[in-house]
Structure formats: structure tokens, C-alpha cells
């Protein structure tokens, strides 16, 4: 294990920002710290960087007690949410800064120039050496910030909401590119995000935080398909709730039977949750009886809104090619879950 975090806790004015956090990261892994605002993800990242300190707990990085090291000795590459580029320095000077700060161990001029050229090529900004941050677009600034962080040859790369300030198009593009850079450098990388899609798409493993506690630490697949709590289920996608009769691994609603994934030994009537894409719509009187209140077209699929007899709203999405074109708003339908979760 490259990084081991044990029992990390931190109180802010009486409220627990982090509550007994423990997890470990393998060398070269790409980890996302995911959670809603206030979940403690940024506090955790800042502790790794040495910008914040816990009240309790340990951070161990390759056998070193990280908490005993001040920021400058941790050799961390940090990319700030605002990028924090030095506005009065050119791109080249920004990237060289960390190397210039080494005092006696400062590399030779040619070495520094070589590093600048190499990194600008890596982040695809060749020819931008003499530009100032104010002359760059948001995406370009982000890449300079990354190059600057990589210049000190860090042992750990930390990114705080790396795509937070960018528009949707640039975001997607940079996301792929960041993954590419990670694979190329093999750096252990940890990034903070509140966007579950980003985390699921990019990271090897995701630390999903809720109110300062780890809700789940798993791969994207596990988090999507085997959520450990209702919070995890709700945070990573939309879902619906319904009451079902449960017997062993099978649940049934009004003649519609479907498996319960994270089965317990529970038996009886209980609320289950199912994904909006894990259901079918039929015009038979089966499953959850509901009335369609809206049909919305999107690229490749259709979204249905319905309301059940108890007044609860339901949302189902179905690929367009499977759509039964006879359905219309106002119809009474039966909604048939295909798979559900019990928490």
C-alpha cells in the first residue's frame, strides 16, 4: 500500500468534518473523493497536502509519517480548484517555480528548460511558454496548473475539483486527457469531485463520503451495482421507491416478481428501491399501478413520469427502440421493476 489513512478525525467548531476515516490506496491508483458539499472531501484532500491537520489519526505514505512532514517536504503535486497560477509570471516561470525553490539542489538552467518543454508537450501547450495566465482559457490554465504540479516530480498528485470551473464540453475532454496523463505517468492520484459521473467515469476506486464518514470505498462498478446504503444508491443515480413483499431473494408487487440484489434474511412487506432504468412499463394491471403524467424524448431514450395510487412520483427511462408507441400521457399503466435494492 502506498498511502494508508487511519482513524482520521477533525472537528470544526463542534461539528465533525471528518469522523474516523480509514482507507488505503495502492501505488499508481487513481482515486476519487466523492461526496456532497460538506461531506469532508476537501478537508481530507487538504490534510493529505499538509494544508490542514486532523485532531486524531495517522497518514502514512510509503512508510513515512506524513503528519510529521510540513507541506514543502511532502513532495506533493497539488492542483487547486482556482488553479492558483502566479498571475505575474509567465507559463514557463510558473512551471519552473517549484524547481527554482530548491535552493542548493536547484537543477541547472538547461535542465529546468528541458522540464518545461517536456511538461508543456505533455499537457499539449507547446509554444505557450511566454504567455501570462490572464492570456489563457480556463482549460489551458488548468493544464498549466497540472504541469506546474508535475514539475517537482511529486510522489502524490492531488487535485481539488479539477474540472469545477470549466464548461461542460471542455470538462469531458479534459477528463479523458487527465486519465491519459495518469496512465502515462503512473502517479498515485487523488482528486476531489462532487460530480458522481466524473468520479465513476475516471477513478479506479471511489471514496464516497457522507457527513465526514466513508459511505463506501469501492470501484465504480461496485458502487453502481452494489451500493451499501440508501445514501450511496441515491447519490450515484436516480431511483424510485415502492413497497414490496419480500420472500428470500425475490420481491413481488402485485404479481410482478423481481430479484432483490443485496438480500437480507428479511421477510415481509418492506420498501425497496430500484433504478429508473431497471423497470419496464406495461399496459397490464401488474406491478406498481400508476398513471403516466409525462413522456419526454431525449437522445436515444425516453423518460416517463408517472404517479402511483399513493401519490408518489416515479421516473422510468426506456431505450427508444424498445418503446411501445401506443402509450400516451394519462394512460393507466403497470410499472414492472426488474431488479431492486433493500436497505
Amino acid at each position: 500500500m502506498a498511502l494508508t489513512i487511519n482513524n482520521l478525525s477533525k472537528q470544526f467548531a463542534g461539528f465533525a468534518a471528518l469522523n474516523d476515516i480509514s482507507f488505503s490506496v495502492k501505488e499508481g491508483e487513481f482515486i476519487a473523493l466523492l461526496g456532497p458539499s460538506g461531506s469532508g472531501k476537501t478537508t481530507l484532500l487538504r490534510m493529505l497536502a499538509g494544508l490542514d491537520y486532523p485532531d486524531k489519526g495517522t497518514i502514512d505514505f510509503k512508510g513515512q509519517n506524513y503528519l510529521s512532514l510540513p507541506v514543502k517536504e511532502r513532495k506533493i503535486g497539488m492542483v487547486f480548484q482556482s488553479y492558483a497560477l502566479f498571475r505575474h509570471m509567465t507559463v514557463a516561470k510558473n512551471i519552473a517555480f517549484g524547481l527554482e525553490m530548491r535552493g542548493k539542489n536547484k537543477p541547472k538552467r538547461e535542465e529546468i528548460n528541458e522540464t518545461i518543454t517536456r511538461l508543456l508537450k505533455l499537457v499539449q501547450l507547446e509554444g505557450f511558454e511566454k504567455r501570462y495566465p490572464a492570456q489563457l482559457s480556463g482549460g489551458q490554465r488548468q493544464r498549466v496548473a497540472l504541469a506546474r504540479a508535475l514539475a517537482i516530480n511529486p510522489s502524490l498528485l492531488l487535485l481539488d475539483e479539477p474540472f469545477g470551473a470549466l464548461d461542460a464540453m471542455v470538462r469531458k475532454e479534459l477528463r479523458r486527457w487527465l486519465r491519459h496523463i495518469h496512465d502515462e505517468t503512473g502517479l498515485t492520484t487523488i482528486f476531489v469531485t462532487h460530480d458522481q459521473e466524473e468520479a465513476l467515469d475516471l477513478a479506479d476506486r471511489i471514496v464516497l463520503l457522507e457527513g465526514g464518514k466513508i459511505a463506501q470505498y469501492d470501484t465504480a462498478d461496485k458502487i453502481i451495482n452494489h451500493p451499501k446504503s440508501e445514501f450511496v444508491f441515491d447519490f450515484v443515480g436516480s431511483g424510485n421507491a415502492a413497497d414490496a413483499d419480500i420472500k428470500g431473494e425475490i420481491a413481488s408487487i402485485n404479481g410482478c416478481e423481481f430479484p432483490v440484489v443485496n438480500l437480507t434474511n428479511f421477510s415481509g412487506r418492506q420498501k425497496v428501491k430500484f433504478r429508473n432504468y431497471d423497470a419496464l412499463i406495461s399496459n397490464e394491471e401488474k406491478g406498481i399501478k400508476a398513471q403516466l403524467t409525462g413522456i419526454f424524448a431525449s437522445t436515444g431514450f425516453l423518460r416517463f413520469e408517472a404517479i402511483d395510487n399513493g401519490g408518489h412520483h416515479l421516473e422510468i427511462i426506456i431505450p427508444e427502440r424498445n418503446f411501445d408507441h401506443s402509450l400516451k400521457v394519462g394512460d393507466r399503466v403497470g410499472i414492472l421493476p426488474q431488479k431492486a435494492y433493500l436497505f
Partner: peptide, 23 residues
């Protein structure tokens, strides 16, 4: 600043640990 530095798990509070100000 933490009011009390815990020394559990063999953790010895180093000087830098108490300095919670980065700048």
C-alpha cells in the same frame, strides 16, 4: 489548533503537526 494532541497508536505529535497554519 487542536487543544490536545493525542498520542494513541504510537503517534507522537511532531512540531509541524501543531502548526496548523500553512502560510
Amino acid at each position: 489548533m487542536p487543544a490536545e494532541i493525542s498520542s494513541q497508536d504510537g503517534f507522537i505529535a511532531p512540531k509541524a503537526f501543531r502548526r496548523t497554519r500553512v502560510i
